[in-house]
């Protein structure tokens, strides 16, 4: 075997290492700070403690926060699947006049940043009285997730041989039965992928939740933002304790997600 060491390779790995070390540094600081006491410079805190976690749990009503977060995440994913599966099926199987238009309309909510359309949306939700409620938060989060789910599901359904459905129909299955007994089971991998990715995205979705939530309908990431924004009100260690809770939840979902999808799949990509 020959081993050539190229300058480009060395540069690549050094630069990458710098980036990764900084990411680890950012996360490490948060974790250490949340369990440390009297850290005024120096590499590590002087003492270690878990008191900030109990402080934070009391301060925030952590069970309520977790409940809202998971209620929102699960509802958004379930509703997005209900809306998305028929559309993904239609996009995978049929060609029609306005397909291009529908596709680009679906892409827009993913392309346009939430801060841009979030304000009119919030205005509308305030008008109909859904803002500051959990249902409002769920509705707002659906906007980028439904198109996302559709785009992930469509290629999975395209891969299913249409003849299998025809075979089922010839054997006497109705349209609904075919859908339920053939299509859904065969597209389970796609449904699973879409669910896990939508969960990861919804947990981390800040802007939309931020704009439409009230004190009782915040998710963890929004609570974290308010804490960090109002730094000084509470000890920074308590903020970092909440950050660690958020970090652990997101990480768990991410690690599960990465067992099934590649990281490039998690980033939006548009084909010409």
């Amino acid at each position: 075997m020959k081993k050539k060491i190229r300058i480009s390779g060395v540069l690549f790995y050094i630069a990458l290492a710098v980036f990764i070390i900084n990411i680890l540094g950012i996360l490490g600081t948060v974790v250490l700070n949340s369990v440390g006491k009297e850290w005024y410079g120096g590499i590590f805190p002087k003492y270690f403690t878990l008191e900030w976690y109990s402080y934070m749990a009391k301060d925030h009503d952590l069970p309520q926060l977790l409940f809202v977060t998971f209620a929102v995440v699960i509802s958004v994913t379930a509703i997005a699947l209900l809306i998305g599966i028929p559309t993904a099926y239609g996009l995978a199987r049929y060609d029609f006049k306005f397909k291009g238009l529908l596709l680009s309309m679906l892409l827009l909510p993913m392309l346009i940043p939430p801060m841009t359309y979030g304000i009119p949306l919030a205005a509308m939700l305030y008008k109909v009285g859904l803002a500051t409620k959990i249902s409002g938060v769920i509705i707002a989060n659906l906007i980028p997730i439904v198109p996302f789910v559709i785009l992930i599901l469509t290629p999975f359904i395209e891969q299913i041989d249409p003849n299998i459905e025809s075979a089922a129909k010839i054997l006497g299955a109705g349209r609904f039965q075919t859908f339920l007994k053939i299509l859904i089971p065969l597209s389970l991998p796609g449904i699973f992928t879409a669910s896990i990715l939508s969960i990861v995205r919804t947990i981390a979705m800040f802007e939309l939740t931020f704009l439409v939530s009230g004190p009782k309908s915040q998710t963890i990431v929004v609570a974290l933002y308010y804490d960090a924004y109002a730094a000084g009100v509470r000890p920074p260690q308590a903020i970092d304790a909440l950050a660690v809770v958020y970090f652990l939840i997101t990480m768990t979902c991410l690690v599960i997600a990465l067992r099934f999808v590649s990281p490039t799949q998690m980033v939006f990509r548009l084909e010409d």
Partner: peptide
Amino acid sequence: TLGTVLVAEG
């Protein structure tokens, strides 16, 4: 994935 808020806080 972690998002801007956590990264900023860190």
